[in-house]
Amino acid sequence: MSIRPVRSSEPTQNAAAGNVVLVETLRLAVPLHIAELRDRPTNVLVAIASRSASVVGSMGDVLQFHSPKRGAAAEAFNALARGLAAAAIVTHGGVTFAGSHWCTVDACSGPDADHPQPDVTPS
């Protein structure tokens, strides 16, 4: 698995990258989730990523702003880390968020690197 810092001109990437605690914690948490999820079927991973996106979409602001609801930030963070991990496993070429790139290809040097073509087996 590869984790590489990536420079981005996207404003949202730069804003998230400015949150050092979030970025550094994701750099630890996403690989742990990848290790846990790696052997799950693709349809399960897609469902995990979809659920995670729903949680982050509805609660993601608590990662930037304080929430009086106990555990809300932890729930949003875990959904983000788990969703990124699931997406990194099923997406050809991995995923990039807040200046970090996660990929299951060991030799990956970043999002623009050459990746071997996925082995697609008809069902």
Rank of each mutant, 00 (worst) to 15 (best):
Q13I: 02
H101F: 02
I34N: 05
Q64A: 12
A17M: 04
G110W: 05
A113C: 13
P41F: 00
A15I: 13
V55D: 03
R27K: 14
G18R: 11
A29N: 03
L28F: 01
H101P: 03
W102H: 07
H92Q: 15
T96E: 15
P111I: 01
F65I: 14
D61Y: 07
N19H: 13
A49R: 12
T91Q: 15
T96W: 03
R7S: 14
A86K: 08
H92W: 15
K69F: 13
C108T: 12
C103W: 10
P68W: 02
P116D: 10
S100N: 14
S109T: 15
S2I: 02
E75C: 05
V62L: 00
M1Q: 06
S109Q: 13
G83I: 08
D106M: 04
H115C: 10
H115N: 09
P11C: 05
A16V: 05
H101Y: 08
P111A: 12
I3C: 00
R27P: 02
H33T: 00
Q13Y: 04
S52T: 03
P122R: 07
S54K: 10
A16N: 02
G93F: 07
G71D: 10
Q117G: 08
D39T: 14
L45Y: 07
G94Q: 12
S123D: 13
G99F: 02
L22C: 06
N78D: 15
L26S: 03
R82T: 06
Q64L: 09
I34W: 02
Q64C: 01
G94A: 10
A72R: 09
A107M: 04
V95N: 02
V46P: 00
P68I: 09
T121R: 14
A81F: 05
H66Y: 09
P118C: 10
V44A: 14
A53L: 08
V55F: 04
L26H: 05
A88F: 09
L26F: 08
A86T: 08
D112A: 12
G57Y: 08
E75M: 13
G18Q: 05
V20F: 09
W102K: 09
A17N: 07
D39A: 14
T25V: 01
M1E: 10
A85W: 04
V21Q: 11
P111L: 07
N78I: 00
I48Q: 06
D106G: 13
P118S: 10
I48D: 08
L84M: 12
I48S: 07
A15M: 13
L37W: 06
A35P: 00
A88W: 11
H92M: 02
V30Y: 02
S58Y: 00
A79I: 01
L22A: 01
A81Q: 03
S9R: 13
A113T: 11
V62I: 12
T121F: 10
P11A: 12
D114H: 12
C108G: 11
P31V: 06
A17W: 01
L28Y: 04
G18L: 02
G93D: 12
C103E: 08
C108R: 11
R82H: 01
F77S: 00
P68C: 01
V21L: 09
